[in-house]
């Protein structure tokens, strides 16, 4: 067991047990700090969610056309089609970054054309792939309005405080994701004076918790952000980047990563690199998908339902 596993209080084995759910799609509910799987997504969807819900979509990588998925646009369209067909319309969507593969204008245009068909408000944070155009301006031109710094912001919906963070810029050699001093200061200010009974949802591209530092899957100063959230009774941290479902609960904080709509990536340490994972064509859609998050007033934990494109 490595050091970071000790710190997280979650063994690697436990994490991999979690991973075995990745291909199926499970409704998670949590009581007393222990996540419990209620059933497969098919059953979960049959039950109408009570309360306020929103949807997470991530890593659409519009423009990606390599063997792991030659048609990332097509699978994004399928994901949006499923969102449109949901029996209960979510209040809005969050996109946890890597909208595009190479931050080209045409890729942003395609993404917008497809995602807007869901007819939902979308709150974005950038992934590293969205910030690689020569002048690093296309993401901010499209989605940066009203945001601070590299694109961070917060808003309130149905009594929940949402915080979108950017941990993909100004990365340091040898390091992980990075929030930086300015953003951390802003976060501290944003939370100051807020009632600790306010449920908090934090979303960012790279996991804020250390998933696998050997592949850069973590945020160097993520622990400082989590320090500011310590006093709050209900904190949910939603990330993307690793193209697979992973969840852990630590005290008052539930961490969760969403699937990509474009291509899967290997479980930590199971491949030479975190690059796109080529799977059999008939298996691809079971590894892509979205997540919907249901908030029930009075409950500490938000229920997270991961839905693959094909179960």
């Amino acid at each position: 067991m490595s050091d970071h596993d000790h710190h997280d209080g979650v063994s690697r084995r436990k994490m991999l047990e979690c991973m075995t759910w990745a291909g199926t799609g499970v409704l998670w509910t949590v009581s007393g700090g222990v996540p419990r799987a209620l059933g497969l997504v098919g059953e979960a969807q049959a039950a109408e969610p009570v309360g306020f819900s929103f949807l997470q979509i991530s890593d659409s990588h519009v423009g990606f056309s390599k063997p792991a998925n030659p048609n990332a646009i097509g699978t994004l369209e399928e994901a949006i089609g499923k969102i449109k067909a949901m029996p209960t319309k979510p209040s809005f969507m969050i996109h946890t970054g890597d909208i595009t593969h190479l931050a080209k204008a045409a890729e942003f245009d395609d993404a917008e054309r497809i995602i807007s068909q869901a007819k939902l408000d979308v709150h974005y944070v950038p992934g590293e792939h969205d910030m690689i155009d020569e002048e690093i301006k296309l993401y901010r031109e499209r989605y940066g309005r009203g945001t601070k710094g590299a694109g961070w912001y917060s808003f309130d919906a149905n009594g929940v405080h949402f915080i979108g963070l950017v941990n993909v810029v100004d990365l340091k050699a040898g390091g992980l994701g990075n929030l930086g001093a300015d953003q951390l200061e802003w976060l501290e200010d944003d939370l100051r004076g807020r009632s600790t009974s306010t449920p908090i949802v934090v979303f960012a591209h790279i996991p804020l918790w250390t998933v696998y530092p050997e592949w850069g899957w973590g945020t160097a100063d993520g622990a400082r952000a989590l320090d500011y959230l310590k006093g709050f009774g209900s904190v949910t941290v939603l990330n993307g980047h690793i193209h697979q479902v992973m969840q852990k609960v630590e005290g008052n904080v539930t961490f969760h990563t969403a699937r990509s709509t474009a291509f899967p990536q290997p479980a930590p340490g199971t491949a030479p690199s975190p690059g796109p994972m080529k799977v059999a064509d008939d298996k691809l859609r079971s590894l892509l998908g979205t997540a919907s998050i249901v908030f029930k007033p009075g409950q500490q934990r938000l229920a997270i339902i991961d839905t693959p494109l094909q179960s």
Binding site: K66, L102, A103, E128, H129, I132, E134, L171, K172, A173, G174, G175, L176, P213, E214, W215, G216
Partner: peptide, 28 residues
């Protein structure tokens, strides 16, 4: 610039020294 698959980048070193470098997208 960002190097997509099979793209190349060249730099000519005119001065002696140790040049540490990294990928700014994947800093590990």
């Amino acid at each position: 610039k960002t190097l997509d698959t099979d793209d190349s980048y060249s730099f000519t070193f005119a001065t002696a020294g140790d040049y540490k470098y990294f990928c700014s997208l994947h800093p590990h």
